[in-house]
Amino acid sequence: MQGIIRTIRDGSGFDILLLGLALLYLIIFSAFPIVYNIIMSLQTVDMFTLTSFNRPFVGLQNYYDIFSQPVAGTIFWNTVKFVFLSIVFQLSIGFGLALFFQQDFPGASYLRGLFLAGWIMPALVVGAIWKWLFAGDFGVINYALTSLGIADDRIFWLSDPNVALYAVIIANIWLGIPFNMILLSVGLASIPRDVYEAAELDGAGAFERFRSITLPLMRAQLGAVISLGVIFTLQQFDLIAALTQGGPADSSNVAQYWSWQFSFQTYEISLGSAVSVLMIIFVIVVAAVYVRSTRHEHSY
């Protein structure tokens, strides 16, 4: 007994205790739910068997059921579009802004900081604001588009099945720009000034400098930002809940929202877990690639 107290006070027991507490918590509330999720996705779980510990196993039936849903294809492509378009625009706009604010002018870093306001706000509030900006009859976006002559008529952003997904994507791009910009700014700041100066002396133009210095030196950073972008885009739920709730008729629904709908709206919990298992595996694979690449970066 005395030995245990001494090692906790003064030896490696101290390390093990501190590490163990946090890890135990994460095992109970993160790792175990994942395992439990996989088990549930192989069972029948609904309102009747919710509290039972002895549910019938059905093998891969739930996975078969999700893929045979008529909307499965739509939701799959929506998710791909949602992730792909969000990242392309977040990254290019974020990169453009990072390059712009890298230049030397008064207030540059202060203005850059203001962009982060969009990132710190609860996504549900951001969704509420965009819902009002997108409003069909009185929305300011429609006003701007029609008065600038870009659109002939009002667009019903959130109720037209052809555009609802893009409305959600636009709002998500707005949310993601600050994070991309800040991470890329850090990378840009770490490129030594004299590399550019040397290139300039050699007669390289601004575009040439960007292509042959900035892009290659930012490769690791860009990779990290893209993988984080995939992860964060797949976490996006609040925005969809506030804007369209997946509608109209699943036209803006994505996998992470679909999973939640199964579990909490139609109570087909085992189907919800099956979608959730597939998505979690995907997210973890992306994260593993990202973490491996950044740790590799550090080792040399």
Binding site: L26, F29, S30, A31, P33, I34, Y36, N37, M40, V45, L50, I231, L234, Q235, F237, Q256, Y257, S259, W260, S263, F264, I269, G272, S273, V275, S276, M279, I280, V283, I284, V286, A287
Partner: peptide
Amino acid sequence: MQVLPSSLMVTPIFV
């Protein structure tokens, strides 16, 4: 564990 989306974890956690 940092990357697990809440909307996917909520199903097993709820049950």
